[in-house]
Write a protein that binds this DNA or RNA. Structure first.
Lengths: 117, 117
DNA sequence: AAGTATACCTAATATTTTTATGTATACGAT
DNA sequence: ATCGTATACATAAAAATATTAGGTATACTT
């Protein structure tokens, strides 16, 4: 059961927002392929996680969709709304801070953060 | 509800294993304080997450406990079993790889990993 | 006497993911 | 022609994990 190709839980929606910051619009399947490519296949998003996450972000008003038929198959393109962009910026920096902290916990040798008094 | 002091979901058990790799034995409350200290209060473990996680690791045979009364209060010290040490090494490196991949996804400018063919 | 810090714990709920399906089109190989 | 693979969407049951909100108790300070 050693599953080391999963994304860290809770990070999926941020990854989606980040990819859409970089690329105007993307469709679901494209997102799964992009993540595989960027991590050399070390990580993959399962569809059972991806689609509900996309639907939730849309329901929250962070993403909008337009469906389009390409080469005989329907694609549903997602892009950031204005709120989506704002949230993306904020959540990306939050996740970045978390990753730094996690690495601080894993790599000892780094000093603990000095508390901002 | 902007909760940026949560640990990334799924990483709690690895953090516990890591702290116990560094320090022979620790008790629950001590772990919560250590994480706060190492992250300057930016992250904290809730007790509702910590204790079930400790009990699960013990049930899996990765941790053993000894209870001791110190200054009038009962403390339950946890330490790694042999299996626990093995698992710790493996899970820590897995999480490290995940963090690298996540950062690759968040900081573009880095090239995608070259697939090891 | 009250509040804070220390120290353990659990139960209900919420969130998120995995696993397992299901549908359907396009295309290359047998 | 049919089979497998890739593309492309989706959901539902179950598992895993965390949050929230409690509960108990001791020690120390105000």
């Amino acid at each position: 059961m050693s599953n080391n190709q999963q994304l860290l839980k809770g990070s999926l929606s941020v990854i989606i927002l980040k990819l859409l910051e970089e690329q105007e619009r993307m469709y679901g399947y494209e997102i799964t392929q992009k993540v595989k490519a960027l991590t050399a296949g070390e990580m993959s998003i399962t569809e059972g996680a991806l689609y509900p996450a996309l639907h939730k972000l849309e329901a929250e008003g962070l993403l909008t969709t337009e469906t389009q038929v390409v080469e005989g198959r329907a694609r549903k393109y997602y892009s950031l709304t204005k709120d989506g962009h704002t949230e993306a910026v904020s959540r990306i920096s939050e996740l970045g801070a978390m990753l730094e902290n996690l690495q601080r916990l894993l790599n000892r040798g780094l000093d603990p953060l000095k508390p901002a008094i």
